[in-house]
Design a protein around this nucleic acid. Sequence first.
DNA 1: CATATGATTCCA
DNA 2: GGAATCATATGA
Length: 210
Amino acid sequence: MNGVLTSGTAELAPLPRAYFERDALVVARALVGARLVVRPAGGAAAPRVARIVETEAYRGPRDLACHARVGLTKRTRTLYGPPGHAYVFLIYGMYDCFNVVSFAHGKGHAVLVRAVEPVSGLAADESTAGPGRLTRALEITRADDAVDLVSGERIFIAARDRRPRIAVSARVGVAYAGEWADRPWRFYDRDSAHVSRPPRRSIGRHGERG
DNA sequence: CATATGATTCCA
DNA sequence: GGAATCATATGA
């Protein structure tokens, strides 16, 4: 299984390991517009394909919003593992969050995927805006923790087919992290209607554009 | 062992 | 505004 798929005329192939071997801040920005592909268990059903429209960078133990702040534990084993693997964790006892381990083995960097927009193979009525919603729609669970995203077997990420207009903001839901919560480490597609927390709609000509 | 809490979502 | 719901982290 090399993971190569065809979607119309576009080829979907897994991004290489080197793509993920960069600071999470770089990977987070690069992933906006990339496509997330999930092969349903069993392999009979069509792959689910979605375009990533919102991400956040988490940058290791010094970043007090990052799970890596507690050091290497059973939970953070994957986060501290090699880049290009999925780090999936349960949040609030109810939702699974999908992350991509980045930078280098032992660094504790990851990129949280916060929203995607459906491309193919997804139920049209299910929302994919929000980290808990997209995993539910794509059927990504903690069972997928530590899967290799480069092998192309179960989950992989394919390059963007066009360059999105990217906006930046502070990360969501990390107020406990003090000054780290204010870092502009959230990236989203300005033109997507599937971002989890859209910017305030500007009224008139004085509104900022993202 | 006991307790607090979270990279969220949904409902009133 | 508040509940749901539970694995993880931390302290007794």
